[in-house]
């Protein structure tokens, strides 16, 4: 099941970004997280979290067939990936990220953001 977001309860704290980078990359760096909290202020005064909803646009764009579906989650096969980054530009939410070696990485549905979110703003459909 893909991630879902409820802006009614999100308070923009970014605990999701923190746990995402720490769980998956073993670092403290929200800018490298595979989801992104955006604030829309002063008007209308709401938060949005850009998340991977496993839409598969990255896989469609991948010329080497490196992105494949595993139990409902699109995963990048590092062996097949040639780093062309077509997936990055194809992602409608801009949450396929590029690591320090120029290779793409994306949400693997580790569920940590859902577990930590103190506002229950993230869940699974």
């Amino acid at each position: 099941m893909p991630l879902s977001f409820n802006h009614e309860t999100c308070s923009g704290c970014r605990a999701c970004e923190l746990v995402c980078s720490l769980q998956n990359l073993k670092i403290i760096n929200p800018s490298k997280a595979m989801l992104r909290v955006t604030a829309r202020f002063p008007d209308p005064g709401i938060y949005k979290v850009d998340i991977c909803n496993q839409c598969g646009a990255c896989a469609e764009a991948c010329p080497t067939g490196a992105i494949h579906l595993v139990k409902g989650t699109w995963r990048i096969d590092k062996e097949k990936c040639d780093g062309c980054l077509a997936c990055v530009s194809a992602c409608p939410e801009n949450v396929v990220k590029v690591d320090d070696n120029g290779m793409p990485y994306k949400c693997i549905n580790c569920r940590q953001c859902v577990e930590v979110c103190p506002r229950d703003a993230l869940g699974f459909n």
């Binding site: 309860t9 999100c10 308070s11 923009g12 704290c13 970014r14 605990a15 923190l18 202020f41 209308p44 005064g45 709401i46 938060y47 103190p118 506002r119």
Partner: peptide
Amino acid sequence: KITDKGCFSCPIPCGKYGV
């Protein structure tokens, strides 16, 4: 109130944003 508005990493957002 429109939304709760929290600070960075805060689980108990005291900020209440509204009109």
